[in-house]
């Protein structure tokens, strides 16, 4: 049984069938990549996992519990963290504070009104945040205001914000979009490293085939709202349907 099971998900926007009977089975501890041409419905699908969109029909089960109809913060509290396509961070806060906030959310739940506690008392939270910042290579920039960071650092920061929560499932929406090759490779190494040390299940949406084939244990190919194939990377490369829908146009 998978940690994330998606069954017969349909989503229609007006006349557009964005998702058409999508099925997905993500196994615990694996890296599951979702690839597909632009407009295939990848981000729509991801949005259905985190409570941003609700599918018209179908079910999304995480650890045997439905993720549909509950709020984004409840989904996160259940153990699902998400990295966005454009980094969603707290721009006005320092890098350290950016990571401390998710750590608070992990420890204290959806809210805890403690106006008379001092942040300086929270050494555990601070330590765990600093540790994760070290993991992603931002230890020396922890006091920098997030808005002043480079694009690559912002992505790494967002990754740290998710990792500090030790999620069971990490959703990554194009984690290397717009990155230079060197940075892309760094991110791949980071993701691999996370996979080995923390054993977090990951769902990755990605355009970059290099990233997909170096990370994924399993790949689902999405085109026009339908899953064409779901298989291991070796079989995806040569699959005629995939070539036709996606790889073909890139390689001709």
């Amino acid at each position: 049984m998978g940690i994330l099971e998606v069954q017969n998900v349909n989503k229609r926007f007006g006349g557009l069938q964005a998702l058409n009977n999508v099925n997905l089975n993500v196994e615990k501890g694996s890296v599951h990549a979702i690839i597909g041409p632009n407009g295939a419905g990848k981000s729509t699908l991801l949005n259905c996992f985190v409570g941003r969109l609700t599918p018209d029909t179908g079910s999304v089960m995480f650890n045997g519990k439905s993720l549909l109809g509950i709020k984004p913060h409840q989904i996160n509290q259940a153990g699902v963290s998400r990295v966005f396509q454009t980094p969603e961070i707290f721009s006005d806060l320092s890098a350290l504070e950016n990571v401390m906030i998710p750590a608070f959310a992990k420890r204290d739940g959806a809210y805890k009104l403690n106006p008379f506690r001092r942040v300086t008392q929270e050494s555990e939270i601070r330590d765990s945040a600093e540790e994760v910042l070290r993991d992603v290579g931002l230890a020396d920039r922890k006091d920098l205001i997030a808005a002043e960071m480079s694009r690559g650092d912002k992505r790494r920061l967002e990754m740290a914000m998710c990792l500090v929560q030790d999620p069971e499932l990490l959703l990554l929406d194009e984690p290397t979009a717009g990155m230079a090759r060197a940075d892309t490779n760094k991110t791949i190494d980071l993701l691999k490293h996370i996979g080995e040390t923390r054993g977090i299940t990951k769902v990755v949406i990605e355009h970059d085939m290099h990233v997909v084939f170096s990370l994924a244990d399993k790949i689902s190919v999405l085109a026009q709202g339908t899953v064409l194939v779901e298989d291991v990377p070796e079989n995806i490369k040569g699959h005629p349907k995939v070539r036709e829908a996606y790889l073909g146009e890139a390689q001709v």
Binding site: Q77, S81, E88, I89, F90, E97, P102, F104, G109
Partner: peptide
């Protein structure tokens, strides 16, 4: 700190479990 996070990016705060 949470209140400043609300000002900075409420969306992220929701996806952070708050």
């Amino acid at each position: 700190m949470m209140l400043r996070a609300v000002k900075s990016n409420q969306n992220r705060l929701n996806y952070t479990g708050v």
